[in-house]
Nucleic acid binder design. Structure first.
Lengths: 172, 172
DNA sequence: CTCCTTGGTTGTGCATCACAACTGGTTGCG
DNA sequence: CGCAACCAGTTGTGATGCACAACCAAGGAG
C-alpha cells in the first residue's frame, strides 16, 4: 500500500538528508506512520461529521468535560492550556456548557476575579454517557482483536501522544 | 493517567451494559483507547495550526496529492470518495491546485465530460517535499523508540484505520 | 490613589466544509 | 434526428469552529 507509484516515494533522493544515522527501514516506518496518522485524522473527522447532532455532547464540549473530570476543577486559562486551545474559545464553550447546566462556575476563594470550573452532577452524567458511547464504538471496532494487541496499541499510542505533546512544548 | 478521579470512570455502572461478553479490562482498554484517540486528534490539530503558512502544502491539498500518488490518476468524484470528502470540496481544492500548477486535468478518453486528475511533475516534487517534512517530524518524535515498537505502532494503527474505514461503510 | 499586572470576555475575521441548486456533456429511446 | 433522463463537475449559500486582538474588571505594588 505504501510505495507502488514510482517516483512518488523518492525516499533516497528526498529523504536521504533527513538524518545520517537512520536506515531506509527507519524512514519507511516513519513515512508510513505519518501516512496512517493523517488517515486516522481524516477518518475520525469524517466519523464526527456523521454523528453530529445525534450525540448531545459536541466534540469541543467533550474535551472540556474530559479535561475537568481528569484533573479536577480548573480555572479557565488553565483549562485552555490543558486542552491546547485558545482562552477565548474556551470562554465561549464554557458559557455554553454553563447554559446547559453541565458546568458550574465557582468563585475562586483566593482570587475574586477567577472562576473555578467544575462539572455539575448532570454534567458528569452526560459526559459519562458520551464516553460510554465512544467506548462502545471502540469495542465494536476492535471486537475481533486479541486483547494483547488492543493493549499494545493503547500503550504505544499513549506514548506517542506524550512525545508529541512534549515536543510541542519545546519544538527545538 | 487514566482514572485518578473517582466517580469519573464509573465503568461498572455506566459501561456495564455495553456487551455482556467483555471483561472490565476490555472496557478499560477500549475506554483508554478512545481517550488517546481524542487526544491524538487534538494534538495533531494543534500541530497543524502551528505549521500553517510555513508549509506550502495545506492539509487538504496534501490529502489530494497523497491520494493521487497512491492510487494513480482519478476522476474528481472518485477522488472525493477516496478521501472521504464532498465532491464540491474536492472540486474547489482541485481548482486551487491546478492554479498552482501542481495538478493537471486531463480529458478522460472514455467520457468527454470527465476530467482525470493527476499531479504534475512539480506537484510530485512539492508533495514529496511536504512528505519528507512530515517524516522528519515523525522521526524526531520517535528518535528514542526501538524500531520494533515503531513498527508495531504502524502495524496496529494501520489495522485500526482499516477497521474504522470499513465500519464507516456499513455502520451496522 | 494610581499604575501595572492578570483573568476573562467579546469583536472580528478567516478557514474549512457540506448541502443543495445549477450547468453542460452523454446516452438511450421514440 | 431529437427529446428526455442522466451523470460529472461546479458554484451559491450557510454553518461551524477557531484564533488574534481589543477590551473590561479585579487584584496588588508603590
Amino acid at each position: 500500500m505504501a510505495d507502488t507509484v514510482p517516483g512518488t516515494r523518492a525516499s533516497a533522493p528526498v529523504l536521504g538528508d533527513l538524518s545520517p544515522d537512520c536506515t531506509a527501514d527507519d524512514l519507511a516506518t516513519a513515512d508510513d506512520l505519518g501516512l496512517q496518522l493523517v488517515r486516522l485524522v481524516r477518518l475520525t473527522h469524517h466519523a464526527k461529521q456523521q454523528f453530529t447532532g445525534q450525540d448531545p455532547v459536541e466534540r469541543a464540549n467533550y474535551a472540556l468535560l474530559a479535561a475537568l473530570t481528569h484533573t479536577g476543577p480548573l480555572r479557565a486559562n488553565a483549562l485552555a492550556e490543558a486542552i491546547h486551545a485558545d482562552p477565548s474559545t474556551v470562554s465561549r464553550q464554557v458559557s455554553h456548557l454553563v447554559g446547559l447546566g453541565w458546568l458550574e462556575r465557582r468563585a475562586d476563594p483566593t482570587d475574586g476575579r477567577a472562576c473555578v470550573l467544575a462539572p455539575t452532577a448532570e454534567g458528569h452524567r452526560v459526559f459519562a454517557a458520551a464516553r460510554a458511547h465512544r467506548t462502545r464504538l471502540v469495542l465494536t471496532l476492535l471486537r475481533d482483536w486479541p486483547e494483547t494487541d488492543r493493549r499494545t496499541l493503547v500503550h504505544l499510542l499513549t506514548r506517542f501522544n506524550a512525545e508529541l505533546e512534549s515536543y510541542q512544548g519545546e519544538p527545538e
